[in-house]
Amino acid sequence: LMKNIYLLSEPLNFFLLTQFFGFFGNVLVILAFILDRNLRHRSNYFFLNLAISDFAVGVFCMPLYIPYALTGTWHLGKGLCKLWLLMDYLVCSASVFNIVLISYDRFLSVTKAVSYRAQQGMMSSPVVKMVAIWILAFLLYSPAVLLWEYMTGCSMVEEGQCYAEFFNNWYFLLCASTLEFFVPLISVTYFNVSIFYNIQRRQRRGSIQYCESPGSSSVSWRFCFLLRRGSSLSEMENSVSSVMRSSRPSLASNCTSPTATSPVAVKRDFSASFRANSRSRLQRDKKIAKSLAIIVCVFAICWAPYTLLMIIRGACQGKCVHPILYEITFWLLWINSSLNPFLYPLCHMRFQMAFMKILCPQKLAALRSNDTPSV
């Protein structure tokens, strides 16, 4: 008996630790979003949606599965088994689709900055996308979980076990895995590669794909036009010089005092501001690219083993994959949900400040007082 207790204690500690990190990390993200209004930014709503799906994994899916994983027998009845399967497939699929949505949003913020900034005030767009994520996740597996045994006329699940009726159906698993893993992986990889290519092109040309809405100034309009065309910084400076030369008489007529700003000073200030803005935005986009690369790697590491083994297991009717190996890959999926709070929000300064406000308010107050200049 003592030997069995010892053997069970090791995996139990691992299960509880994974559940704790998944629960604590995602609760922290949700609380930060509720308490800090500065986080209620369009793209941050996608982090909230991801945290909700991963939170459901830690608070519902893991606790019900731990006794089943330790004993090998499902003791909670067929009805609760159906509910657990429904929730597990739903929230895991929603987590994956939220990762794709976050990656797509970052892709737009880097490569389509002008149109992305123009839509910042529109809250309907992220809400529609968030709802669409859950609808798509529900349609992927839930109808099969609920209706498979009625469509086939019999149940394939043994007594005391809890798994989906399509567990050994190779064709369904291949199609579902393509939509749940392979398509999202290819999409996120494409977004990541596009961001890296965009950054390298901007570094090579010395330009940035960004400008504010052009005003009445011919200088700002010329800058916006050349930026959208992808011109280099030297071309833009030459263009400004020509504009300033052509507008020199009118500027001279408006200069009624010796302290008035000269055309050369206007050009120099505009160029300096443009360079500083370019460097700042380029550095921000580099951070986005690095964090997105980590996302791709972690997502692939956590999901690829389970997806491949599930397809292989379905093809050989469960006879060619060891149950322990399959169990390891299954928990690897849930580890991804526990890691997501640390891969996404913790990489952002606003979330870091919000977490410090919740966990260490005195330390945050001390940092702010140190940053405040003395009178």
Rank of each mutant, 00 (worst) to 15 (best):
F23T: 13
F24I: 07
F24T: 05
F24W: 07
F24L: 11
G25P: 02
G25I: 04
G25T: 06
G25Q: 08
N26Q: 12
V27L: 15
V27E: 12
V27G: 13
V27R: 07
L31K: 10
L31F: 12
F33M: 15
F33C: 11
I34F: 15
I34H: 09
D36M: 08
N38T: 12
N38V: 05
L39V: 10
R40V: 00
R40Q: 13
H41N: 14
H41A: 04
R42N: 13
S43W: 06
S43G: 08
N44F: 12
N44Q: 08
F46I: 07
L48E: 05
N49S: 15
N49V: 05
L50G: 03
A51L: 06
S53W: 05
S53A: 15
D54N: 15
F55P: 07
F55M: 11
A56Q: 04
V57Y: 02
V57R: 03
G58S: 15
G58H: 03
G58I: 08
G58R: 01
V59N: 02
V59Y: 06
V59C: 14
F60H: 04
F60T: 04
F60E: 04
C61V: 13
C61E: 05
M62A: 09
M62K: 08
P63C: 05
L64P: 02
Y65I: 13
I66Q: 13
L70S: 07
T71R: 14
T71W: 10
G72K: 00
G72D: 00
G72C: 00
G72A: 02
G72V: 00
T73Y: 08
T73D: 10
W74Y: 04
H75F: 09
G77V: 07
G77E: 04
G77F: 11
K78P: 04
G79D: 14
G79S: 12
C81D: 04
K82H: 07
L83V: 14
L83K: 09
L85M: 15
L86A: 13
M87L: 14
V91R: 01
V91D: 00
S93V: 05
A94Q: 03
A94T: 04
S95M: 01
S95L: 00
F97H: 09
F97K: 07
N98W: 06
I99L: 14
I99M: 11
I99Q: 09
I99V: 11
V100H: 03
V100Q: 05
L101E: 09
I102D: 07
I102E: 00
D105W: 06
D105G: 06
D105L: 05
R106Y: 03
F107T: 01
L108Q: 10
S109C: 01
V110S: 01
V110W: 00
V110G: 01
V110M: 01
T111S: 03
T111R: 00
V114D: 15
Y116W: 15
R117N: 13
A118D: 10
Q119N: 12
Q119C: 06
Q120C: 09
Q120V: 13
M122W: 09
M122F: 11
S124W: 11
S125N: 08
S125Y: 10
P126H: 09
